[in-house]
Amino acid sequence: MIKFEQPVLSINNLNKQFGKGCPSCKGSNEDSLKKNYCPVCGTVYACQNIMFEVYAGEILGVVGESGSGKSTLMQCLYFDQEVSSGEAYISSYKDGKTDVFAESSQQKRYIRNHMMGKVYQNPLLGLRINFTSIGNIAEKLIAAGNRHVGKMEARGKELLEHVNIPIYRMKEAPKNFSGGMQQRVQIAKALSNNPPLLLLDEVTTGLDLSVQASVLDLIKTIQRELQITVVIVSHDLGVIRMLADRTMVMLDGRIIEQGLTDQILEDPQHGYTQHLVQSLL
């Protein structure tokens, strides 16, 4: 009997709406929606029936324009937002048989602190900007139950070196750092507990091209060394091309196309994806 590999993360029918809906739009009647918005009651269907799996050591790219639902998807995965409906399973949590969306807030905190790391587009969301850099890493370690100061300091130094932050600046607050350095501190913090799953939300937006390249190179190097599973969201197909093994394309809260990144880039099927690829050429 063939034993198939269990996905690190499995998402079934994830839905997130802002608003209660009305008879006109309930049941996801696409004809009644303007893009993903109901003009009758004002409900926004930010994510609609999202389904995907991501496997060990894989980088899954999620690409789409602003408002396509990709950042809302990431907020739901990291429990920054409650889903409206749907299921999520993480292989390292209760043998991958328990829907993590249905767990208590206490259990969700445990999952966040032990099994996930997230790097936000805006470092203000992912860092305490006035804390020291090593203090930010210690915060994540303490949240996961670490109490040994010496071990936490050693781990913090190791991670900051790993992301090319000079050790002599470890006691400096990220508010004094450039955007690229702030993102690298976020990456170090996200990796502090060796999570099996790393979520990256528009990590290069607003950075200079040379800084973008160094951050992307760092992510690729870390992913390769640690064999970590990554979900990366971007509106930039160039970022996805550089990093992702597989890619999902989102539009108006739905996945409209998915496949191997090379396949998506070389032979896009959906008109919107074709337009995206042409704009990259």
Rank of each mutant, 00 (worst) to 15 (best):
N49H: 08
T43H: 01
F131Q: 08
Y78S: 10
V44L: 08
H114E: 09
G179N: 12
P39I: 02
L199W: 10
N176F: 13
Q274T: 01
H114V: 08
N146Y: 10
S92R: 14
D262T: 12
M115W: 10
K189G: 05
G117C: 08
L125T: 08
E139F: 04
K118L: 14
G135I: 06
I167G: 05
G21P: 01
Q75W: 05
P23D: 12
C25S: 00
Q227R: 15
S66D: 01
E58W: 08
S85T: 12
Y37F: 13
K220M: 07
M74W: 04
I142P: 08
M51H: 14
C76Q: 03
G150R: 15
V40E: 05
G135C: 04
N194H: 15
L218Y: 12
S85Y: 03
N122G: 03
C41L: 03
F79D: 05
S66P: 02
N136W: 06
L124V: 10
S68T: 01
H114D: 04
D245S: 06
P196Y: 09
G21F: 02
K157I: 15
V62C: 12
I222H: 13
M51V: 15
V185L: 13
M115H: 12
Y89H: 08
I222A: 13
L276S: 06
A143H: 02
I129N: 11
F177W: 04
I232R: 04
L141S: 07
E58T: 11
V239H: 05
I11E: 00
N194A: 14
V83E: 00
M170R: 15
G117N: 11
V277R: 10
D267C: 07
V230H: 01
H114Q: 15
M250D: 03
N176H: 12
K118Q: 14
R254K: 15
P39F: 02
S234T: 07
V185E: 11
D201M: 02
G238R: 05
Q107N: 11
L33V: 02
N15E: 06
Y55E: 04
Q106M: 09
Q223A: 15
N29Y: 06
K157P: 07
N12R: 10
G259D: 13
L226M: 09
L260F: 14
Y120F: 10
Y110P: 04
S28C: 00
Q263V: 09
S133G: 10
S214I: 13
T261N: 03
K35A: 12
S68M: 01
S85L: 10
V203M: 00
A143N: 04
V231G: 01
S104W: 02
V230T: 11
N193M: 15
I232K: 03
